[in-house]
Simulated assay, not measured.
Amino acid sequence: MRKSDKKLEKSIVTALTEACEEALKQYDGFQWLTHIVNYQRFPDSLSVICVFDNKAHLRLAINDDKGEQLKVLIEGKLSSCNINVKGVKKRILFDTEEACANEHGGNWSKRLEEFKNARHV
């Protein structure tokens, strides 16, 4: 990783940590978020995955338009750290602990690697 990539990674982590802390207070069932990125293809490769505890809470968030509010929150935090990614809302995705447990035995590394390969990050 180049020095400039490390600096960018630090900014992304800062922005997403702030978004996560706010989301934990605002959204029932929200657990955590993470990101994947290929810095050779940044910003087009950036994806953010928001994880809820179960499908029921995720459905409630999406149906109550809280999913869109969460996307706005993340976009704002990234922007406040001077990370402006065109169309970032399309790259903010949702998942659940429940789905990972059922499909990957709770192995998030494996799940995110499959996700990364499917998205061609």
Results as ranks from 00 to 15, higher is better:
28 D>M: 03
16 L>M: 07
25 K>R: 08
109 S>P: 04
40 Q>F: 15
66 K>Y: 00
108 W>C: 06
43 P>M: 04
35 H>F: 14
10 K>M: 07
109 S>I: 12
5 D>V: 00
85 V>Q: 06
109 S>A: 14
59 R>P: 02
5 D>G: 12
37 V>E: 03
77 K>L: 01
111 R>K: 10
30 F>E: 00
41 R>V: 06
93 L>V: 13
27 Y>R: 03
85 V>G: 11
15 A>N: 07
35 H>A: 06
51 V>Q: 03
100 C>T: 08
73 L>H: 06
58 L>V: 07
119 R>C: 05
15 A>W: 00
114 E>R: 11
58 L>Q: 15
72 V>L: 12
89 K>N: 07
76 G>Y: 02
36 I>M: 10
28 D>P: 03
114 E>Y: 13
38 N>D: 15
91 R>M: 01
75 E>R: 06
37 V>M: 06
44 D>T: 09
23 A>M: 07
101 A>Q: 14
53 D>T: 01
48 V>H: 05
116 K>H: 09
37 V>G: 05
26 Q>G: 05
95 D>G: 04
77 K>V: 00
104 H>G: 06
85 V>R: 10
37 V>L: 10
104 H>D: 11
119 R>V: 05
45 S>V: 05
22 E>M: 07
79 S>A: 11
99 A>E: 08
5 D>M: 01
23 A>G: 08
84 N>H: 14
18 E>I: 00
6 K>Q: 12
29 G>L: 01
33 L>H: 09
98 E>A: 08
104 H>C: 08
16 L>P: 10
3 K>D: 09
79 S>Q: 07
23 A>W: 00
66 K>T: 00
120 H>P: 01
64 D>R: 13
44 D>N: 14
61 A>H: 02
81 C>E: 15
3 K>Q: 05
115 F>R: 07
9 E>I: 02
14 T>P: 01
65 D>C: 02
49 I>N: 00
59 R>Q: 13
85 V>W: 05
24 L>N: 03
10 K>S: 13
114 E>G: 15
4 S>R: 13
47 S>E: 12
6 K>W: 08
69 Q>W: 00
1 M>P: 08
53 D>Q: 14
97 E>N: 15
36 I>G: 14
75 E>S: 09
92 I>S: 02
85 V>K: 06
88 V>G: 03
69 Q>L: 03
4 S>N: 04
91 R>Q: 12
63 N>I: 07
81 C>D: 13
61 A>F: 00
21 E>C: 12
56 A>R: 08
2 R>T: 09
121 V>P: 13
26 Q>N: 10
55 K>G: 01
43 P>H: 04
87 G>S: 10
27 Y>L: 06
45 S>I: 04
101 A>R: 14
